[in-house]
Simulated assay, not measured.
Amino acid sequence: MKSLSNSPDVLTDSTVAAQRLARAMMLAGGDFSLILACCNSVKRQQQILNLLHKSCLTKIQEVTLLPTDETLYTTIKTAIGTAQPEALIVKGLESVEAINQLILSANIMRDEFRKDFHFPLVLWVNDEIIHKLVWLAPDLKNWTANTIRFE
């Protein structure tokens, strides 16, 4: 993987985390898997995504949520239609105005994700969104493995 920063520590941490994310997406291979990727900087997030698109063997599709989106499941379903991408990354959660409602509805619809989506679903989150998931959607949050953190 190519570097994301000049700092050796940041390079090592980011490279290892990016490799973990790429491996998690690859290992899901045709099965639903919910992965949280945490990065508090939108700029850094985009750098990592660019790196993943260039270096990851899994073809990644992206969906960016709008501030007006109210449901995660319906937004994704509308964006992908009948397609089943190899992996899907959802970004923009931090910009959703009704984030609590979106998280609550995702928790209610969690079984539909597993039933209809046969690919790894990566949610790009920040620390605030993770806290909201823990409090508002504990069942959905429990489906995730350890959060992959990008410092």
Rank of each mutant, 00 (worst) to 15 (best):
E86T: 04
K91V: 01
L51E: 07
N146D: 13
P85M: 00
K141E: 13
L140F: 15
L4F: 09
I60N: 05
R114Q: 12
D31N: 15
T147M: 03
Q61E: 12
W124N: 11
K43N: 11
N126S: 04
P85S: 01
L11G: 09
V125D: 09
L65C: 04
A24I: 00
I35L: 05
V96E: 04
N126D: 15
F113G: 11
E62S: 08
T71E: 14
A87E: 07
Q61T: 08
P120Y: 00
A106K: 01
N126F: 05
G29Y: 06
T68K: 14
T147C: 12
R20E: 11
F119A: 01
G81T: 10
D139I: 03
N142C: 12
L27M: 13
W135N: 13
L102S: 11
Q84L: 01
S3P: 10
E86F: 02
L133P: 15
P8N: 04
T82P: 13
N146Q: 12
T71G: 13
K77I: 01
F119V: 01
V63C: 09
N40F: 08
D111H: 14
I129D: 09
T75I: 04
T71K: 02
D139L: 15
Q46P: 06
T82Y: 05
Q61I: 00
F117G: 08
E151D: 15
V96W: 03
T15H: 04
K77V: 04
E86C: 07
K59I: 02
S5Q: 08
S3Q: 09
C38A: 12
I76D: 14
R114E: 13
L65K: 02
P120K: 01
D31T: 11
K132P: 14
A137E: 02
I108R: 15
N146R: 13
G81Y: 03
S55L: 00
L88W: 02
D9F: 01
V16Y: 08
F119K: 06
Q61L: 02
G30P: 14
N6V: 15
H131G: 07
D127K: 03
V134G: 02
K43P: 10
I129G: 05
T74V: 10
S7G: 13
N40W: 09
V16C: 07
E62M: 04
V125H: 07
A17E: 09
A18G: 13
K115I: 06
A145V: 03
D13M: 03
M26P: 15
A18P: 06
L121A: 05
L34C: 11
A28T: 02
L136W: 03
K59T: 08
S5V: 05
T82S: 14
G92Q: 07
G29T: 01
A83E: 14
K43V: 13
L123W: 00
H53W: 03
V122E: 12
E86P: 12
I103C: 04
S14D: 12
E151Y: 12
T74Y: 13
